[in-house]
Structures are given as C-alpha cells and as structure tokens.
Amino acid sequence: MEHATRILIVEDDMVIAANLSLQLTQLGYEVTGIESRGEEAVSHALANPPDIILMDINLNGKLNGIETVSAIHSENQIPIIYLTANSDETTFLKAKQTRPWAFITKPFNRLNLQRALALVVEQGKEMADPKVPMPELQVLEDRIFIRHNGKMEKLLLEDILYIEADRNYSNIKTLSSAYLLASTLKVLEEKLPAAFFMRVHRSYMVNISKLDVIGDGHLEIGRKVIPISKSYRERLLSRIRRV
C-alpha cells in the first residue's frame, strides 16, 4: 500500500501552521511535525526526513527560511515549497538559488495549496519510479531537469553559460559544472526558451544574458572564447538592439 506523502511544516506563525496542518491532513498528507525556528527545522529534517518541506521564508531566529533550506540541502536534497508574503525581487532571487520546487504566496487558499503539492508529488514520483524512463531533458519556465548520474537534476536557466555540440551529444556548461546530454544541439535549440538562448554557431548556443564580448568572429563568456558565424552575428546584434 502506498504511504501518505510526509510533510514537514516550518512556520513561525502558529495560527498559519495549525491551519496548514489541518488542511494537509484533510487532503490525505501526513504531517511529520511543525517547527517554528530554522535550527529545529534542520535537526528535524535530518533526523526524520520528510518527503516535502513547506518552508516559510521569513522565519525569526538565527536562520531565516532560505538559510534553513541551505543547511538542510547540504545533507539531504528534500523538495522545498516556499511560503512567502514577501514578493520583493531580492528575496525571490535569493530563494531561487536554493532551487525550490514551488512557491506559495500568502495568503493562500486550499486550492492553491492542493495544486502545488499535487504537482510536486507527481513530479517526484516520475523522477523516482524506475519503471518510468527518465527523459534526457525536461524544461520548465525558469529551469530544466537533466538526467545526470542516474537521476534528474535541477538546473536553473540563468546558471547556464553556453552549450557546446559534441557530435550527437551536447555539453551544458555552468560556472562550476558541465553536463553531457545525449541530445543534439538542434534538439536543445528547439526545446530551450529563445528568451534565454540563441544559436551562434553550428557547434554553440549561448545564454544571451551571459555575454561579455561580441567581436567580429567570436564571443566571450567569462574566459571562454566562442566562435560566431556571420549570419548568426547579424541576428544576435539585431536581437540585442531590440532589447
């Protein structure tokens, strides 16, 4: 028999936390506990790992929600759903760096909670089920999941510097890592959002926001020199002028 999805609530407003716990129980989830401080949440999550953590971003105490997630993820990559009433861009960007699976904005209603959890649970099942073949690449709005070392790993689009073709494979390069996919550059060009990426050569696609230099026959991203074909250069310059 399939066990109920286990959820840890980390919320320092006890009224909200109690309401969450009640709604989760009514929806068929198992609540492993309620923690109001980041330090206790880290201990709980590592000693009794839940399937999902509902994390308030603005926790009181030594650790805020983002710092708490970073501490947990250093030991266990438990899926995170952030709860936040703070919609400022700086906080959102900091939270994104911890690669949450979803955000729920306060005040939330039962339907929003139910849908967010259902999506995260389903995605987790697909990634964990050995009977379901893992795709090479799954594209979401601001991130991709790529197959790496036998599992699907999350990679934010903004972290990708460029992609280099290697025959029928493609190397995705970030500042600190590289991922080899069994997909051609043409396939990736069709799947990845044009708002982020552009083909500049038969062997290269770049993240436009990461460009440092545009020369006559080359581009530079960091210290990497990337060739650019004449026809692609004209398209790139036209694209930049529109922006």
Rank of each mutant, 00 (worst) to 15 (best):
E75K: 12
Q77I: 07
Q77V: 06
Q77S: 13
I78P: 02
P79V: 03
I80T: 03
I80N: 09
I81Y: 05
I81N: 02
I81R: 06
Y82S: 00
T84Q: 04
T84L: 09
T84M: 06
T84K: 05
A85E: 07
N86Q: 13
N86W: 02
S87Y: 06
S87P: 00
D88V: 09
D88P: 02
D88T: 04
D88R: 06
T90C: 02
T90P: 01
T90Q: 12
T91Y: 05
T91G: 07
T91I: 13
F92W: 06
K94F: 02
K94I: 01
K96D: 15
Q97C: 01
Q97K: 13
Q97S: 15
R99C: 12
F103A: 08
T105M: 09
K106C: 04
P107L: 11
P107R: 09
F108L: 15
F108Q: 12
R110E: 15
R110H: 10
N112Q: 15
L113S: 01
Q114S: 15
R115S: 11
A116I: 06
A116H: 07
V120A: 07
G124D: 06
K125T: 07
K125V: 01
E126S: 12
E126L: 14
M127C: 10
A128R: 11
A128Q: 14
D129Q: 07
K131W: 03
V132H: 10
P133D: 10
P133R: 09
M134Y: 01
M134E: 09
E136H: 11
Q138V: 12
Q138N: 11
Q138W: 07
V139D: 05
V139G: 14
L140F: 11
E141H: 11
D142V: 06
D142F: 09
D142K: 13
R143Q: 14
F145E: 01
I146R: 04
R147I: 04
R147D: 02
H148E: 14
H148R: 08
H148I: 03
H148T: 12
G150M: 08
G150V: 07
K151F: 03
M152K: 13
M152N: 08
M152S: 11
M152R: 12
L156R: 09
I160P: 06
Y162I: 05
I163S: 04
I163W: 01
E164M: 10
A165C: 04
A165H: 03
A165D: 03
D166H: 09
R167D: 15
N168T: 10
I172C: 03
I172P: 02
I172H: 04
I172L: 15
I172G: 04
S176V: 10
S176A: 14
S177C: 06
S177E: 15
A178E: 11
Y179A: 03
Y179D: 08
L180E: 08
L180W: 03
L180R: 12
L181D: 04
L181N: 05
A182E: 04
A182Q: 11
S183W: 06
